[in-house]
Design a protein around this nucleic acid. Sequence first.
DNA 1: CTGGGGACGGGGCCC
DNA 2: TGGGCCCCGTCCCCA
Length: 579
Amino acid sequence: MRLLLVEYEEDRIEAVCRLYISQEKVEMELPNHARQLLLQLNQQRAKGFLCDVIIVVENALFRAHKNILAASSMYFKSLMLHDNLVNLDTDMVNPSVFRQVLDFIYTGRLPSIDQPSDKNFNALLTAASYLQLHDLAAVCRKRLKGIENTFPAKSVMSNGAWELHKPELSTTVTQGHVSSSEDCDDTHRQGEPLNDKLSDDETFTSSSPCLLSAGQNGNRSNVANINIGRGEEEDEDDEDDQELGLDLSKKSPESSATEEISPQSLREESPQSDSISGANSASSEDCSTQHQDLEGVEAMDVGEQACEQSQVLPRADPPRQRSRQASRKKNWPRKDKGKINVVEQTAQTGGSEESKVSGEQPSSRCSLNSNRSFHCGEDGENEKEHSEESGQSEGESLGANYVYRQEGFEAVVGDNLYVCIPCGKGFPSSERLNAHVETHTEEELCIKEEAEDLSARVAPTAGTELQPFECSVCNKTYKDLAALQQHEKGHWLSRPFPCHICGKMFTQRGTMTRHMRSHLGLKPFACEECGMRFTRQYRLTEHMRVHSGEKPYECQLCGGKFTQQRNLVSHLRMHTSPA
DNA sequence: CTGGGGACGGGGCCC
DNA sequence: TGGGCCCCGTCCCCA
């Protein structure tokens, strides 16, 4: 991370220097600032660094940054004020969809959708509408309206990912997720035909809203935007990188109308070089030297891309095969768990949390790929890969299920909150958990997943070999699973809200949510005096009496005073107990 | 060792 | 849905 930051700073300085050279008037506005910022935030999200909110979607937990979510969605904005744990309506969004949503929020792109279909986009649209992500909803709506009229062929990546770079849509950009330049936005507004729904298009160049200021060349902006929005994120889109990057190389040097190149456009000229050098300076140099005949930063972009394409896994490899190779290469048999874990685990070879960060600097293609595992496509592929390797069918494979939960639990914080789903053991760190996960064999996992949550809740009771299935609520034992399930239905009727972590059931959703906080170590209420944190406001109020010395609860029998009512009650028992 | 007090965690329930 | 309250329980400290 430190190296990344250093390289990032170098890039910024270099970019500013370019401005000095090319412009009499020096503007201290940094190019690509917004995109780099998002990139950093996305990396932090993947590592859970400074994440201050957890979103619960069914059995998956997602860490994120409040500010980012709040800036992207009014829904989140309203939710994030007081709570660090957000439960989403599972009728409106499922974990896989929310994962795409979250990636969209942090990148401005829709990551891989293996087989883009109306169903995919309907689910996305539902989620987007529910979460009040109007930009994403607009994308989905447009997709559903008709792909041939809405998105050019290049919009669909080879891996099914959707890039928000539709040229005609780019022209209508007024504000992106992160707008780096207001005046630039104004440039867009002027004279640009707005599409039917402005909001629908706002995010199409969310990463770089100023591209069109370089000229009216829609293709150019399209291409550049792709580069900006991508950077070092994944290698699976290299094909498109190549295709589009070449496009860029052709057009950019002949950007005849130099007067059209505004400072904004100049700032945006080297997004790819920035991002790539930020993530892989070594290969960046190598690549750029191979393309010295190309002028300017954009030529370097091409160099980067061409270099990537020549060094990365063979193009002929289907993504899944490539992913599998990468996975095996990493020697993490269980590491196909999900994007976040993949990233962490790759970095974890460095050891501590800090070393993970610092050890992340990609001096080789391999590490660059590791960084790129942020992408959801990797995720899905890995899941499928796992399915295949474990003999499962694709889709709702057991492996995928395991992956999902694992990813979710990776996101928890606190002591022993890295929970291994198959066996329910908790660990204080992801390293410990990952080491533990290694001890599970593939077969064991499959068996356990087949038993689903029962495997975690039902344990053979000692001395009850004939009735090994125990109810997790009342501890009654049954001889077979069906009998237990029948019995448990009764519990479910009165306790319809299960904890997705421990399986415990609650009578009220609020109680379950509160309970989840204890799993996650979320204590939003902090004492200003001592810093102690609590899961409930009431506890904090109660605690504050420790500092104030207030003892409002008085025993009418002996005059003893207490800070807590429950202690008075306990005290009264002492008076009333026969002993 | 034991009892009492202080402080805190978690669940149920009502508003 | 969350706050507030009550209850049960635990842990720790100290006399």
